[in-house]
Amino acid sequence: MSDYNFAYLDEQTKRMIRRAILKGLAIPGYQVPFASREMPMPYGWGTGGVQVSAATLTPEDTLKVIDQGADDTTNAVSIRKFFEKTAEVGTTTETSAATVIQTRHRIPEEDLSEDQILVYQVPIPEPLRFLEPRETETRKMHALEEYGLMHVKLYEDIAKHGHIATSYAYPVKVEDRYVMDPSPIPKFDNPKMEMSAIQLFGAGREQRIYALPPYTKVVSLDFEDHPFDPSKAPHACALCGAEDSYLDEVITDDKGGRMFVCSDTDYCEKRRAEGHTGDLTKETAA
């Protein structure tokens, strides 16, 4: 790939993205428009996250890429290989060893540190988009801090189902000002967004970048009588026994058999290496 610049993007493009990242950090939760470039992977497959990572990576970085919490999902593999080739950065699957983590749909279970950067891939950055399809309208709503529509929608859920019927991409309010889409992470991950690491969000097709500095106030929208509930499957991981991690449901046969395992593969492997067992691993050991 020597025909291409370090981290693929040309320097002028990187400067444009870097300026957007800095504005995003200065105005947490506000979506900064940026002239997203066509990347050698399809829109909707992480082009925003890839551009943000490309503008952020240095040759000294160690990159981890996850999709659905796993390092080995095909799109994560593909993006990791892209940066191995174009930025010649070191890569890892170990959360604590990474300096930059690009993610789709999950926040790692392990607490991140002040020296880490979490880059999210975002498909639809506008939290109000499903309520109001027009960009011209939603921009006004953010400007006027007019979020009544969102509360009405959440309240209608409660009236209809008894609960807020949003289980992922659950909207948050940042520093009591901007309503922000946390990307399609399960709502289980929402409380983790008040963290020590820098969080950067890239939406390539929609041409938006936004950011959260460390320790930024991030509150999931709710009502006093219906407080936010970051629920998950009421099981323990069948492999490592973890009761505090987000679980994938794996169908094991065609007779209704199923098991639950950690979605964060690194977290699960680490726990097993430490000797933790789950229902399945106990049986095998015996």
Partner: peptide, 19 residues
């Protein structure tokens, strides 16, 4: 060496802006 040096400089700048 513009690309890596700008990248390193930006990381410092981003860090001070974020913190």
């Amino acid at each position: 060496d513009p690309a890596p040096e700008a990248a390193r400089a930006f990381r410092q700048i981003m860090t001070v802006m974020a913190k």
